[in-house]
Amino acid sequence: MIIDETIKKDIEELSGQKLSDCYQCGECTAGCPTAFAMEPVPSQSIRLLQLGKYSELLESAGIWLCAACNVCGERCPRGVDYGKIADACRTIVLRNKVTHITLEKVDKKFILDAPQQAFIAAFRKFTT
């Protein structure tokens, strides 16, 4: 993936968030339900962006683990919504035509059982 300084602007515009607002308190990470498995965690993801290490985040597994639960944005003392930042990062990757999941990967039994909503959301979120 080609990374340059315009990416910061893209991320800020797509997410509507100002990266410099984050003062790295970690409250987002502390409340995130998937942080135990997420790498990097929300606060560190924002830190990477603040440091200009865009590709490190865009190529990470962390951005795909956000469950879009909105806890981080709800409680952030500085009004930063990491969920939106993760969404923007995923969008940038997806708009570069790099898809994240394919139907073949999904358990067939699951397709029969689970509500439609789960699939629509997953394919809306994770495919180009």
């Binding site: 999941i101 997953a122 994770f126």
Partner: peptide, 9 residues
């Protein structure tokens, strides 16, 4: 965790 059920069960 519902929204990542498909991708990260």
């Amino acid at each position: 965790g519902g929204y990542i059920l498909v991708d990260k069960p």
